Simulated assay, not measured.
Amino acid sequence: MELVDKAKNYVSEKIANMKKPEASLNDVDFKKVSHDSVEYLGKVSVNNPYGTPLPICEISYKLKSAGRVIASGTIPDPGSLKANDTTMLDVPVKVPHSVLLSLAKDIGADWDIDYELELGLTIDLPIVGNFTIPLSQKGEIKLPTLSDMFK
């Protein structure tokens, strides 16, 4: 029994100390307006320390403003991370017009909304299995204007 415990501790320690991919949420920008929603784009930078590409299982997201979730979703199987390199990922976040209109009533004249974008980047690591990197960023984004709608 003692040998099994020592083996478990050894494996746990090795897994805890092994290099893992690191990610950062660099920016959130207005992308486009469609007939039913406004799309924002989260830009994520992910560094893969391994000599082999790593599959990304999924990216989940929640966009919050004024204390409530205004958009959420999952992007299944968004590709893989390049080996020994940094991969840039675009995470499109669609917000329905109805939600933006209710926010616009609350914000008044400055046409900016405070937001918090939470992302979960789930990667398939060798030996470990699925590993989720939590990311979040707070800031301000502009609501689209009439001129944005006719571009």
Rank of each mutant, 00 (worst) to 15 (best):
2 E>L: 11
3 L>T: 10
4 V>L: 10
4 V>T: 05
4 V>A: 06
5 D>E: 05
7 A>M: 06
8 K>M: 07
12 S>F: 09
12 S>N: 15
15 I>P: 06
16 A>K: 11
21 P>N: 01
22 E>D: 05
23 A>E: 00
26 N>W: 07
26 N>Q: 14
27 D>F: 05
29 D>Y: 12
30 F>V: 08
30 F>Y: 07
34 S>R: 09
35 H>P: 06
38 V>H: 00
40 Y>F: 01
44 V>T: 02
44 V>Y: 00
45 S>G: 04
45 S>Y: 07
46 V>N: 06
50 Y>E: 09
50 Y>R: 09
52 T>C: 11
54 L>G: 04
57 C>M: 13
58 E>C: 12
58 E>A: 14
58 E>K: 15
61 Y>P: 04
62 K>E: 13
62 K>M: 09
63 L>S: 06
64 K>E: 11
65 S>N: 04
67 G>H: 00
75 I>P: 01
77 D>K: 14
77 D>A: 13
79 G>D: 01
81 L>S: 02
82 K>N: 15
83 A>C: 07
85 D>M: 10
86 T>M: 10
88 M>I: 13
90 D>G: 15
91 V>H: 02
92 P>G: 01
93 V>P: 00
96 P>V: 11
98 S>K: 15
99 V>K: 15
100 L>E: 00
101 L>N: 14
109 A>L: 11
109 A>M: 12
112 D>N: 11
113 I>D: 00
114 D>Q: 13
116 E>M: 13
116 E>V: 14
118 E>C: 11
118 E>Y: 12
122 T>V: 10
125 L>E: 01
128 V>A: 08
129 G>N: 02
129 G>P: 01
130 N>L: 15
134 P>D: 04
135 L>P: 00
135 L>M: 05
143 L>H: 05
144 P>D: 02
146 L>G: 15
147 S>I: 14
148 D>L: 09
148 D>K: 11
150 F>P: 08
